Amino acid sequence: MIYSQFQQSPFQTRFSGVKGWMAFAIGLAVITLTLIALPFVLLIGAVSFILLSLFGRLFLKRQLARFRQQEQGAYGTKQGEGEVEREPQIFRERPFSSGRPQPTPHQGRTFEHDPS
């Protein structure tokens, strides 16, 4: 027969006997270990995320307090020496505290629509 090589599946001889059973056992072991280890990996990830977020929050709070203390120290020494350096206007005003929107100057052009 001309197509005799297609009558037998090539996978039949490749994965039969000891090789087939070993491949099956290794695959089963990998799947089992993955399913057992996955909850622990997710738990460790969640706990580490919580710890990092808390540590970051405390660290940033400490850094902000240190920055403000240095800023106050710098302004305190300048005012104590007689040099009164005023803060820029942009840092003193609070545009969102009044509750009213600030008017902005009109920019650009407005063209009327002519339907005809």
Rank of each mutant, 00 (worst) to 15 (best):
95 P>D: 13
39 P>M: 05
35 L>C: 12
2 I>P: 04
30 V>D: 00
50 I>K: 08
63 Q>D: 12
94 R>Q: 15
41 V>P: 01
77 T>L: 10
79 Q>R: 04
85 E>I: 08
8 Q>S: 14
15 F>T: 01
32 T>Y: 03
105 P>M: 05
58 L>F: 10
79 Q>Y: 02
92 R>T: 05
83 E>S: 03
109 R>F: 08
105 P>H: 03
47 V>W: 02
100 R>N: 11
44 I>L: 07
80 G>K: 07
83 E>D: 14
27 G>N: 06
49 F>L: 04
91 F>H: 09
1 M>N: 07
99 G>C: 13
96 F>D: 09
97 S>T: 03
34 T>N: 03
24 F>L: 10
39 P>R: 00
104 T>A: 15
45 G>D: 03
96 F>M: 05
32 T>W: 08
68 R>Q: 15
98 S>V: 01
18 V>C: 03
62 R>M: 15
78 K>Y: 13
112 E>A: 14
43 L>A: 11
48 S>Q: 14
80 G>T: 14
24 F>G: 00
55 F>P: 00
112 E>T: 11
108 G>H: 03
103 P>G: 00
35 L>Q: 09
22 M>S: 13
28 L>H: 02
98 S>A: 04
99 G>T: 11
9 S>K: 08
98 S>G: 06
72 Q>K: 02
104 T>Y: 10
87 E>D: 09
47 V>P: 04
13 T>W: 00
19 K>I: 11
29 A>P: 00
83 E>Y: 05
56 G>E: 06
99 G>V: 09
5 Q>F: 15
49 F>W: 11
48 S>P: 11
24 F>M: 03
47 V>E: 01
75 Y>F: 14
77 T>V: 11
111 F>Q: 08
8 Q>K: 15
12 Q>E: 10
53 S>I: 04
63 Q>T: 10
66 R>W: 02
110 T>L: 08
76 G>D: 15
30 V>M: 10
51 L>Y: 15
63 Q>I: 07
44 I>M: 12
28 L>I: 07
30 V>L: 02
72 Q>E: 05
44 I>F: 03
32 T>P: 00
41 V>Y: 09
33 L>V: 02
73 G>I: 05
47 V>N: 04
